[in-house]
Amino acid sequence: MSSIGKIRRLLNLMERLQSGRIYNTKELADFCNVSRRTIFRDIKTLQDSGIPVLYDASKTGYWISSGTYLPPTDFTLAETLSLMLLAQEMGSSKRGVPFQGVSRDAALKLQSNLPNHLRQYVGELTASVKINTEPQADLDGSQQHYERALEALTSRKKIRLRYNSLYDRKVIRTLVSPYRLLFQRRAWYIIGRSSMHRAVRTFHVGRIQDSEITDDEFTPPPRFTLQRYLGNAWNLVRERGARSDVVVRFQPLVAQNVAEVSWHKTQRLVWNPDGTMDFHVTVDGIHEISWWIMGYADQAEVLQPSSLVDLITTRVQRMAKIYKA
Rank of each mutant, 00 (worst) to 15 (best):
R193E: 15
A106C: 14
S19W: 02
S177W: 01
A127T: 07
E89D: 11
L230E: 02
D140P: 00
Q111N: 14
P178F: 03
T38H: 02
M294R: 02
S307A: 11
S19H: 06
S177P: 03
L125Q: 10
S290D: 08
F31Y: 14
Q299S: 12
K6I: 13
Y296R: 07
V176Q: 12
N164T: 07
R228Q: 02
P305E: 08
T76P: 05
P115C: 05
G67T: 02
P221D: 07
S103G: 03
E151W: 12
G91Y: 04
R198D: 14
R185P: 00
P135R: 05
S194P: 09
H280D: 04
H197T: 04
H117V: 11
A57I: 07
M1W: 08
D278L: 06
L118D: 00
K109I: 10
R16A: 01
R156F: 05
S177V: 01
S2V: 08
G91I: 06
L85W: 01
S290H: 04
Q144R: 12
D215P: 03
F224S: 01
L226Y: 11
K94A: 12
Q136W: 00
I213P: 09
R16W: 00
M84W: 08
R238F: 10
I322T: 06
L311D: 13
V102Y: 07
I64F: 05
Q304P: 05
L150Y: 07
L308Y: 03
Q47N: 13
S65E: 09
T276D: 07
L269S: 11
Y121V: 13
Q47W: 05
S66F: 04
G192F: 14
Q100N: 12
M196R: 14
N257R: 15
P98Y: 00
I208C: 05
